[in-house]
Amino acid sequence: MDERQDGTIIVAEVGTGHHGEKERAEELIEAAREAGADWVKTQVVWAEEILHPRCGVVPLPGGPVSLYERFRSLEVPEEFYEWFAARALEAGMRPLFSVFGMRSAALMGRLLAVFGGEIPAVKIASPELVYVQLLDAVRRLGMPVVLSSGVSLLGDIETSIGVLRGEGWMVPGWGRVEGDGKGVPVTLLHCVTAYPAPEEDYNLRVLPLLAGLFGVPVGVSDHSRDPELIPATAVALGARMIEKHLCLSHEGGGLDDPVALEPDEFARMVGAVRAVEGAGEEGLRVVREAYGARVEGVLGSGEKRLAPAERGNYGRSNRSIHVRRTVKAGSVLREEDLVVVRTEKMLRPGLPPVFLPVVVGRRVAREVEEGEGLRWEDLLP
């Protein structure tokens, strides 16, 4: 968390909505500032860190998209991210970056050398929560981590928190990858991985459970359409951070613009959060008076489970082990033959990333086509 700030940290996620254009990025940063955001976040996108080229077409709010090619179109020069950090700081906000692989984690190390503690944390998105090798690389930077926990189970979160605390992780049937005990501060964001996310799926009573189980500050990364309901109710239940997408217009052409808030909506959200934040223990009464019966619908049971809207994404939006290129039966797998990516809709999911040290060096039992997930049945005993 930001030691310079009391109260809830509000993060304006502009994502890739700037299209790599500095003028548009400046407009988004200024819109975030005027709306009352504390931090402004962008995403460090290199397609090959996230997807295999054969991942296919994905239905999104703006229509069907060839996802790998769309991500390729969102790539910008590394210098853009240094400019973005400097511009956010000039505007009086703190810059935050989502990283998706080893290259973008290394970039964060270079930005840290330039800006130091002015970059308050690094963000790990929900699909990367199971990517233990990336978490460990980010931990070694020594920066606080904001970790989203959509499309995850309690065991997934427990493993990721352990990695970020420097405890290492278990590889079932193989042994333990030892950590060095050097942990970093973690803020855990509850999230529903659906775009848009139905408000009745949010189960916000899970926030005190997560805070108690893991001993970390909690918050919400909100993809619902309503500007106020989820953020205000989350703060009443102890959320210390609220992240929500910001766009200049829903018709702006950005990947997330259809589910983002326009500046006036974002300002309404900030106002709602600050009103509840000032109510202390009376926060739930305040939100019930403001939003009526809808509040009960978003509180849920408090049990950590996959939300109905995201169940079909488990194992597909999460990272798994895929073959980079076709491997023939009888060949021995090398590390360069494998890639840890999101499966998405078209390809077959593979083994979780924790098994990477197990499969390297194993002999392949049958041909595995380029891009497909690697499974136990593909390997000789």
Score class of each variant (00 low, 15 high):
128 E>S: 00
364 V>T: 00
1 M>S: 12
145 V>D: 01
154 L>K: 14
253 G>K: 03
202 Y>N: 06
52 H>L: 01
266 F>I: 10
289 E>N: 02
43 Q>T: 11
154 L>W: 13
194 A>K: 08
218 V>N: 01
207 L>F: 02
192 V>E: 01
217 P>F: 03
201 D>Y: 05
252 G>F: 10
217 P>W: 04
62 G>N: 10
62 G>M: 07
160 S>V: 04
266 F>V: 10
214 F>S: 12
47 A>I: 09
32 A>R: 01
68 Y>P: 02
259 V>C: 09
63 G>E: 05
242 I>G: 06
53 P>K: 05
177 V>D: 11
260 A>P: 00
337 D>G: 14
369 E>L: 08
321 I>Y: 12
149 S>W: 02
366 R>V: 13
275 A>I: 05
16 T>N: 05
58 V>D: 02
29 I>N: 00
313 N>C: 11
332 V>A: 06
239 A>H: 09
51 L>E: 04
168 G>K: 12
230 I>A: 09
97 F>W: 09
340 V>A: 04
316 R>Y: 14
92 G>F: 03
16 T>W: 02
342 R>S: 14
196 P>W: 07
251 E>P: 03
197 A>Y: 00
96 L>A: 04
107 L>I: 13
330 G>V: 11
76 V>Q: 01
366 R>P: 02
301 S>H: 10
268 R>M: 07
138 V>K: 04
189 L>E: 03
194 A>V: 12
278 G>F: 09
360 V>T: 15
349 P>Q: 14
369 E>V: 11
174 W>M: 03
56 G>D: 11
363 R>V: 15
121 A>K: 07
276 V>A: 12
318 N>S: 05
328 K>A: 15
255 L>R: 06
7 G>W: 10
40 V>G: 09
357 P>G: 13
2 D>L: 09
348 R>K: 14
349 P>R: 14
262 E>Q: 06
146 V>Q: 03
228 E>D: 12
154 L>Y: 12
327 V>D: 03
60 L>Q: 12
86 A>E: 14
294 R>Y: 09
249 S>L: 01
164 L>K: 05
296 E>A: 14
51 L>C: 01
20 G>M: 11
79 E>W: 04
169 W>C: 01
16 T>G: 04
145 V>H: 01
324 R>S: 10
355 F>M: 00
30 E>H: 04
363 R>W: 06
6 D>P: 10
141 L>Q: 09
158 E>T: 15
315 G>M: 00
209 L>A: 13
192 V>D: 10
46 W>K: 15
285 R>N: 05
114 V>T: 14
369 E>T: 08
128 E>P: 02
37 A>Y: 07
62 G>W: 01
156 D>I: 06
66 S>A: 14
340 V>C: 07
155 G>N: 06
250 H>L: 13
232 A>Y: 00
285 R>W: 06
41 K>E: 13
237 L>V: 08
224 S>G: 06
181 G>A: 03
327 V>C: 09
318 N>K: 02
12 A>H: 10
339 V>W: 02
366 R>N: 08
204 L>Y: 05
297 G>T: 11
373 G>T: 05
340 V>I: 15
236 A>C: 07
221 S>H: 07
64 P>T: 12
262 E>G: 03
251 E>R: 09
145 V>M: 03
60 L>I: 11
265 E>H: 06
253 G>S: 07
381 P>V: 13
374 L>E: 00
90 E>R: 14
116 G>C: 12
356 L>Y: 11
181 G>N: 04
119 I>V: 15
85 A>G: 11
232 A>H: 00
381 P>A: 15
